[in-house]
Simulated scan of single mutants.
Amino acid sequence: MKIAVLYGGTSGEREVSLSTGKGIIQALKNKGHDVVDIDFTPEKLDEILSLKVDLVFLGLHGKHGEDGKVQGLLDMLEIPYVGSGVLASALAMDKAKSKQIFANNGILTAKSKTYHRTHHNDHEEIASDIRSSFTLPFVIKPNQEGSTLGLTIVKEDKQIVPAIQMALNSDSVILVEDYVGGREVTVPVVGSQGDERALPVIEIIPKNDYYDFDSKYQPGGSEHIVPAEIGKALTEKLSAEAVQAHRLLGCDVYSRVDFIINDKQETIILEVNTLPGMTPTSLFPDSAQVIGWSYDDLIEQFVMLSFENKRK
């Protein structure tokens, strides 16, 4: 097939997206596809408007890539693409909205509250409300951002206002939630809608206090244990909840669902990633390798699933 790969983008995750795109492009070429690579930017929409391809593979992360905007453009142009559609992408990117959906359907989430810049111009006013609503430690982060950009684990009162300012640099809405300590795990999900399966659960052991940007992307920043050594019951529960979360948002083809296992052995969902990192050393390919799928095979699997969707 003739496949365009959109990667790069303009979000804070651009460098990660460049690596994802590079891996996807090589895998597609290895599988014999004719690849058109596009370092995407909204300023060069002509490249998208004039595309003549069988399929678009999205290697973008963060805003203007993972949030449904590019998906909407491709829908209007009637160009099929790999992954979730507009609504699922937008819902997954909006952490507060997706948490409401999960909580309403019996999946545990951390207590949280949002603050809009337009409603609260005074950072001290926001800080005062946070103090009355949460007890230390808690998390302050942008409502729509990836790779833990703009996130602060607030352990002291003096961190609150700087954390608010940093989160608002990335988004007009900030999300504050209880800090949940425990084991960090993630579950890849793959399949056409209604026929999804969870791949082996991965435990992430970051070298830093939590799975921050450096832990994710710096060499040696974290250790991945696949499959996670958590016992059969927890594995089955996480797998079921990951598929449930994927379906609740209406995701398609693939996603990766992040959880914390707390000291009570409860599984608390963090978020769903509709376009998770897809470099050859990323979490999703690590899990796929355990069941015998090479990186190239995984990318081809996504292409085949998307092509089947196109024919339905």
Rank of each mutant, 00 (worst) to 15 (best):
S112F: 15
T114L: 04
R117N: 14
H119E: 15
H119Y: 11
D122A: 12
H123L: 02
H123R: 10
I126Q: 09
A127N: 00
D129C: 00
D129Y: 06
R131T: 02
S132T: 09
S133W: 07
I140R: 00
K141V: 00
N143M: 03
T148L: 02
G150W: 09
L151V: 14
L151H: 09
D157Q: 06
P162L: 05
P162M: 00
P162F: 05
I164S: 00
M166E: 15
M166A: 09
L168T: 02
S170M: 14
S170W: 15
S172P: 01
L175I: 08
V176W: 05
E177T: 02
E177R: 07
G181Y: 07
E184L: 12
T186Q: 05
T186W: 05
P188W: 11
E196A: 15
A198L: 02
A198P: 01
V201H: 03
I202L: 00
E203D: 14
E203W: 03
I205G: 08
I205Q: 13
P206D: 07
N208D: 13
N208L: 11
S215H: 01
P219F: 08
P219K: 13
G221H: 11
E223R: 15
E223Q: 14
V226C: 12
P227L: 13
P227E: 02
A228C: 04
E229G: 03
A233L: 14
E236T: 10
K237E: 13
L238S: 09
A240M: 15
E241L: 08
R247P: 13
L248S: 11
L249D: 01
L249T: 06
C251A: 11
